[in-house]
C-alpha cells in the first residue's frame, strides 16, 4: 500500500505551489499566449496598426523552401550537438570516476567551461578558427588544409557544433559523474569476480543503470540545442555561409529583430514550440519505456 500524505485545508497547498505557478504563468504562459495571438496578425513594428490574417503567417512560412530547409539544418545541428556534448561527457565522467588522486582538481577543471556564456564561447572559438589569425586554422594551414568556414558550409556547421557542445560537456559531465557515483560498487565487484573486464562491465551494468540520467540529459540537450545556441550562431556565422547554419531559432530572431516582422516571427515561435513539445512527448513515449529507474 502506498502511503499518502494529505493536507488538511486548501490554503497551505495553494500557497506552496503559488510561487511556481505564478512564475510559470508570468514567464511562460503569458508570453507563449502572446506569441500565439500575435502569430495571427501582420502588425507594423511600432504597434500603430495590425491586420488580422488568420493562419496566413503559417501558410507563408510553410510554403517557403528556405524555411523548410531550416528544419533539416536544425535537425542535423541539434543531433550533432546532443551527440558531441553527451558522448565526451560520459567518457570523461567514467575516467574521472576511476581517479583516486587529484579527482577534485580534475572535476573542477572540467566544470569550468560551463561558466562561459554561449556568446562568449562563440567568440573564443571564432578567434581560434579565424581564417586569418586563428591558431587552429594556422596549424591546419601548416598541415596543408585550407580552413575557411566563411565560405565552406560543412566547416561552418562543424565550428558552431563544437562551440555549442564545448560548454555543454561540463554540464553533462556533472550529471553523469553524480550518476556514476551512485552505481552500487557491490554489483561491479561481483561482475569483476565473474571475470567481466572493464568495458564489458560498463556496457552491461553501468550504462543501463545510467539510463535515467542519460534520458534526462537527452531531453535537456535537445531543448538546449534548439534554443540556447542562438548566441553561438549569432557571433560565429550569423546563419551563413548562405543558409548553412540558419537554425529555426535564429530565423525567429532575424525575422523579428532584423526584419521587424513580428507576425512571421511569432508564427515561427509557435511552430518551434510545437516541434519541441512533440519531440519531448515522443522521447517520453518511445524512449522512456527503455529507461529503468
Amino acid at each position: 500500500m502506498e502511503k499518502r500524505v494529505t493536507f488538511k485545508g486548501w490554503v497551505l497547498p495553494l500557497l506552496l505551489i503559488a510561487p511556481q505557478a505564478i512564475i510559470s504563468a508570468v514567464f511562460f504562459f503569458y508570453p507563449a499566449g502572446q506569441a500565439v495571438w500575435q502569430s495571427l496578425f501582420i502588425p507594423d513594428p511600432f504597434g500603430l496598426s495590425k491586420q488580422f490574417v488568420g493562419l496566413e503567417n503559417f501558410q507563408y512560412l510553410l510554403s517557403d523552401p528556405y524555411y523548410r530547409a531550416s528544419f533539416v539544418t536544425t535537425a542535423i545541428f541539434s543531433g550533432l550537438v546532443t551527440l558531441c556534448s553527451m558522448v565526451p561527457a560520459l567518457f570523461l565522467a567514467v575516467l574521472a570516476d576511476r581517479l583516486i588522486k587529484g579527482a577534485g582538481t580534475y572535476r573542477t577543471l572540467l566544470i569550468w567551461p560551463y561558466a562561459v556564456a554561449p556568446a562568449v564561447a562563440g567568440v573564443l572559438w571564432l578567434f581560434m578558427f579565424n581564417t586569418r589569425v586563428g591558431v587552429v586554422s594556422w596549424y591546419l594551414g601548416q598541415l596543408g588544409y585550407d580552413w575557411n568556414h566563411v565560405l565552406n558550409d560543412g566547416e561552418a556547421m562543424g565550428l558552431v557544433v563544437i562551440a555549442s557542445s564545448w560548454g555543454r560537456i561540463s554540464y553533462n559531465f556533472l550529471f553523469f559523474f553524480a550518476a556514476l557515483q551512485a552505481v552500487p560498487k557491490s554489483i561491479i565487484e561481483a561482475a569483476a569476480i565473474d571475470g567481466a573486464h572493464f568495458w564489458r562491465r560498463f556496457f552491461t551494468i553501468v550504462l543501463p543503470l545510467l539510463s535515467p540520467t542519460t534520458f534526462f540529459l537527452l531531453v535537456v540537450n535537445v531543448v538546449y540545442s534548439f534554443f540556447e545556441t542562438f548566441g553561438v550562431i549569432h557571433t560565429i556565422t550569423g546563419g551563413g555561409p548562405q543558409q548553412a547554419t540558419t537554425i529555426l531559432v535564429y530565423k525567429v530572431f532575424s525575422d523579428g529583430f532584423v526584419g521587424q516582422d513580428l507576425g512571421s516571427s511569432s508564427a515561427q515561435s509557435v511552430i518551434l514550440l510545437l516541434v519541441v513539445g512533440a519531440l519531448t512527448v515522443l522521447q517520453f513515449k518511445v524512449l522512456e519505456k527503455r529507461v529503468h529507474y
Binding site: L151, G239, G240, P241, D255
Partner: peptide
C-alpha cells in the same frame, strides 16, 4: 522595407557565387 533583412538575403546569395 525590411532592407536590413534583404541585405542578409543578398549576402547569402552572393556567398553562393563566391563559393
Amino acid at each position: 522595407g525590411s532592407f536590413d533583412q534583404i541585405r542578409g538575403i543578398i549576402d547569402e546569395e552572393l556567398e553562393g557565387v563566391w563559393a
